[in-house]
Amino acid sequence: MARFGMAIDTVRCVGCMDCVVACKTENSVPEGFNRDWITTEVTGTFPTTHLEIRSERCNHCDDPPCVSCCPTGASHVHDLGAVVLVDADKCIGCKGCVASCPYGARFIHPDGYADKCTFCIHRVEQGLLPACVAVCPTHCMHFGDLDDPNSDVSTLLASRRHHVLLPDAGTKPRIYYLT
């Protein structure tokens, strides 16, 4: 069973938001909402400043609190790649999953259901990369099967320093940031 994840190279990323725009058009994300976004973290004092730019989105956690808290099973782990998805037809819009996500990855679609990154499963099923990965002009994003030791993401994680977001929250996120 595949377990999809991403390795995002913060060394190459320039924070241009192309991933965000591509997601919006690919998935017709309504105006005023984002499934992915850019976080810029500045540390240090000028001029010895340090910058980390990250393209962030749902972490498709191995232990997703949004799935375990969902009262209807609308939030679920998909068979393909263990991607965390929402079935809009089962969602009652209780917003529990929104509260349960430490990453703020979920929002309520204007049509009333919880929405978030799908890893572009509709593209992946066709053998394409997620829109954000496919568009990235800096080629900083890598997508693949974390359980396959020969995948792009696995080899990068084996060879590069990396971190995940909020590891202590215990959700076992699957978006890795290469530094």
């Binding site: 320039v14 400043t49 340090h50 800096t138």
Partner: peptide
């Protein structure tokens, strides 16, 4: 576009980047 793509490529290849700017630009961070 092409320049940014190539810039990321150069950064990825470990090129030595020297940035002169009154502002700590994104490029400066690389």
């Amino acid at each position: 576009n092409s320049q940014v793509q190539e810039f990321a490529e150069a950064v990825g290849n470990g090129a030595s980047i020297i940035v002169v700017d009154p502002r700590f630009s994104v490029a400066a961070s690389k």
